[in-house]
Design a protein around this nucleic acid. Sequence first.
DNA 1: ATTTTAACGCAACATTCGTCGCCTTAAAGG
DNA 2: CCTTTAAGGCGACGAATGTTGCGTTAAAAT
Lengths: 197, 197
Amino acid sequence: MRRRRTGGRSARVRTQVLQSVGALLLEAGYDGLTVDAVAERAGVHRTTVYRRWRDVGHLLADVLDTASDDTWSPPDTGSLEDDLTALNQEVYEALTGGGPNLTTALIAAAFRSTQAATALSRFWEDRYARCAVVATRAADRGELPGPADSRALLVAATAPLYHELLLLRAVSDPTLPHRAARAAAAAAGAGVFSTPQ
Amino acid sequence: MRRRRTGGRSARVRTQVLQSVGALLLEAGYDGLTVDAVAERAGVHRTTVYRRWRDVGHLLADVLDTASDDTWSPPDTGSLEDDLTALNQEVYEALTGGGPNLTTALIAAAFRSTQAATALSRFWEDRYARCAVVATRAADRGELPGPADSRALLVAATAPLYHELLLLRAVSDPTLPHRAARAAAAAAGAGVFSTPQ
DNA sequence: ATTTTAACGCAACATTCGTCGCCTTAAAGG
DNA sequence: CCTTTAAGGCGACGAATGTTGCGTTAAAAT
């Protein structure tokens, strides 16, 4: 029978390594996140990291799955447009942090590692699930003609931010969060995202 | 006086290398696109590629700038929603090609290389500029309350595709192009993208 | 306390990546 | 045709990356 050893030294190594990953991401971005740098910073030997995590993608996946913030909940401002604007503001700040920011690094990693990609998908799906309440509250207030596909609504609101800031690398425009939120809210009000029945 | 040598051998090397880049991208994706692989396929020595292009990012930038399709123009279907749907259909097919597709590889490269990123931005900005006519035609037909910010409108229409397929890695949904186009058209009809005056 | 062995540390190794010096080839100019 | 010299070919190198075998440490079970 195979018995794992999770306590004591192993646990200590794991937390040290994962902490180093987060710190390096913020300091040097995805390009500065090498297995060697992580190992050295964690005070652990290279081979240990290679054997337990294999590569940077698996490291990031572990960080993401571990550090899922279970307390996060979407803002509640009293109107759909303001809820979406507040959400977009969070996205905007996460993506704009000037130099190397964590979100961009994670997305870059997702293009190189299947593990990181699925971990990031899980994280986002979790967020979208929690944001479903934004749509139902709007429907309850009578802002929508009926129940709506919350996921489609939220993607419509947030996607332009990722597109402009990440893909198009446009100059950052502080009014973008509100403009994108307004467009999505308008479409929702027109019943575009309404679910049948 | 410094005289460049662009004819004969140099030109032949350049076309062979750039062709190899495109072929390798389709066959092996961004991860299969190494300088060594490009050189071998092109029948050229490694150092030649390193000296002329420096790295994979510069290679891709050259490919993008060279292969800009100057004949492309947006579809003209007779209605804003159908124009946007047709555009989204093109994006959808470019992003969905099953295995390693060219667009995904280019975007992955953009996260690693400043040169590739700016070349890709140029390409997209050119496309958005050509698509401006979609918005003006819609305004002329009376589908919009007035002249609109064509770029914001087009980003609103296409961004959800990139978001779902590239970032969220959701299961591909053939109705997505039309649904996203419908949402953007609805928002535009409500005057969300209208420019002042 | 003792035994077992998973997990770690260490050093050596192979591979890949990018650079450099030197020689050869052939484009451009007369 | 001849000269000049960019541009390409070749081999060697150093650095970074990833792997393997083996000895050591300490977690877990008795």
